[in-house]
């Protein structure tokens, strides 16, 4: 078993089973944020924790083959842009950040309270915040893991500690 690339087989198999469900739960919490407790911020952190679990269990190289830090940062930035575009679309109903699809505006989708597509732009903002928070936190965690592996191998003046090589992945 290769200790340098992630944790033991048990952890890896459990991660294979669980991480997808965690990601789906994060999206669910964000999508139903306007109906029940939750919302984009909580959902984003849950989605990011699915990515963090993959980094912890399989190691940095494996998860960088799936999504790199640059791609995570791209998600982060484009979600921020989506938020601002949604806010600008409020000018359809008269102003910045005006909820242009809700019950009282002319573009109303006409759904009653308690349905998934009620609330106008609130679910859309929740989705944007979900992608933004998840991309930002997962990317930062990946960058932290990469920094540890890189900072150890180079830098002659850093005190060399007797940890197995590629120590970035060991967690005990």
């Amino acid at each position: 078993m290769n200790q340098h690339h992630g944790m033991t087989l048990i952890v890896k198999n459990t991660t294979r089973l669980v991480s997808g469900f965690i990601a789906v739960f994060g999206v669910y919490v964000a999508l139903t944020g306007h109906l029940s407790p939750g919302g984009g911020f909580a959902g984003g952190v849950i989605l990011a924790s699915a990515g963090i679990l993959v980094v912890l269990a399989f190691g940095r190289e494996f998860s960088q083959r799936l999504v790199t830090e640059t791609q995570y940062h791209l998600y982060d930035s484009s979600a921020m842009a989506a938020m601002i575009i949604l806010a600008l679309l409020g000018y359809l109903a008269g102003g910045f950040f005006v909820n242009f699809m809700n019950a009282t505006s002319p573009q109303s989708v006409g759904e009653s309270v308690g349905r998934l597509n009620s609330g106008g732009t609130i679910p859309l903002f929740n989705l944007a915040i979900l992608v933004k928070v998840a991309g930002g936190l997962a990317g930062v965690f990946l960058a932290l893991a990469a920094f540890r592996a890189g900072g150890r191998s180079q830098g002659a003046d850093a005190p060399s500690v007797a940890l197995p090589g590629g120590a970035g992945e060991k967690e005990d």
């Binding site: 306007h34 919302g39 019950a103 759904e111 009620s118 609330g119 609130i122």
Partner: peptide
Amino acid sequence: TAEQTGASNVVMAIVLD
């Protein structure tokens, strides 16, 4: 909140609307 935004979670309506 219910008639103005259509959301049933008041906290989310304040945060995002």
